[in-house]
Simulated assay, not measured.
Amino acid sequence: MKKLLLLAAGLALAAPAATAQTTAATPSAATPISAGQRKAAEDLLAATDSEKNLTATIDRMLASQLEQNPGMKVVEPEMRAYLTKYMSWQSMKEDMVQLYAREFTEKELKELTKFYQTPTGRKTITKMPQLMAAGMEIGQKRMQEHLPELQQAIAEKMKTQAPGGEVK
């Protein structure tokens, strides 16, 4: 059960990164967006194949997690149902439109869309899921390689802690 919760948490945290390329905080619902800005955001998300890329990223992440934890295969249908309900393009589209419309001006959105319609932009869209997956693998490898360092630091810190969290 603990592995299932970790898998769900990992998927929930990683999936939005597949389409949201900004690192800004969650936009405020109080900030109104214009109809033109909304349309420009929708056009950008369509030009970047956001729906297709989000679906492919979720599929890859789930397959990777199931490969790493074969015992979780039995709950794959439940995980897919959960991801479809909460992480699918249909469930996230409006939030993504709002996010992009608040982070970029209408002019910027149109410029981005224009770029993604160029050969270099199309190549970027095609390569981005592979690059993101490879980047995540690099990060995971680096974390695993240096995990003993973190474990040692935590163990040393815990030795100095009294019961209840006070420093000795």
Rank of each mutant, 00 (worst) to 15 (best):
K3R: 11
L5M: 01
L6K: 03
L6G: 05
L6N: 04
A9M: 12
A9L: 13
A15F: 03
P16M: 11
T19P: 02
A20K: 09
Q21S: 10
T22Q: 12
T23D: 06
A24L: 01
A25N: 13
S28L: 04
A29H: 04
A29Y: 03
A30C: 00
T31S: 13
P32W: 10
S34H: 03
S34Q: 00
S34W: 05
A35S: 07
A35K: 02
R38L: 04
K39H: 07
A41N: 05
A41Q: 08
L44W: 06
L45G: 01
A47K: 11
T48V: 04
D49A: 02
N53D: 02
N53M: 11
L54S: 00
L54M: 11
T57H: 09
I58N: 03
I58D: 05
I58K: 10
M61Q: 10
M61L: 15
L62W: 07
A63M: 06
S64P: 00
Q65H: 10
L66M: 08
Q68C: 12
N69C: 00
P70V: 12
M72V: 00
K73M: 13
V74T: 10
V75A: 00
E76M: 03
P77H: 02
A81I: 07
L83P: 03
T84C: 05
T84F: 06
K85D: 04
W89C: 11
S91E: 00
M92Q: 10
E94H: 11
E94N: 15
Q98F: 01
L99P: 08
L99E: 06
R102M: 09
R102T: 13
R102C: 11
E103T: 11
K107Q: 14
E108H: 09
L109W: 01
L109D: 04
K110D: 08
L112I: 13
T113R: 09
K114F: 02
F115V: 13
Y116V: 10
T118A: 08
T120W: 09
G121T: 12
G121H: 09
K123G: 04
T124L: 10
T126G: 09
K127C: 10
L131T: 14
M132P: 03
A134I: 15
M136Y: 00
M136F: 01
M136N: 02
M136I: 08
E137W: 10
G139R: 02
Q140G: 12
K141D: 05
K141G: 05
R142T: 02
M143A: 12
E145V: 15
H146K: 15
H146M: 14
P148N: 09
E149G: 13
E149I: 14
Q152W: 14
I154H: 03
A155E: 06
K157E: 15
K157Y: 15
K157H: 15
K157I: 11
T160N: 14
Q161M: 14
Q161I: 10
Q161R: 07
P163L: 05
G164P: 08
G164Y: 07
G164W: 04
G165E: 01
G165F: 08
G165Q: 01
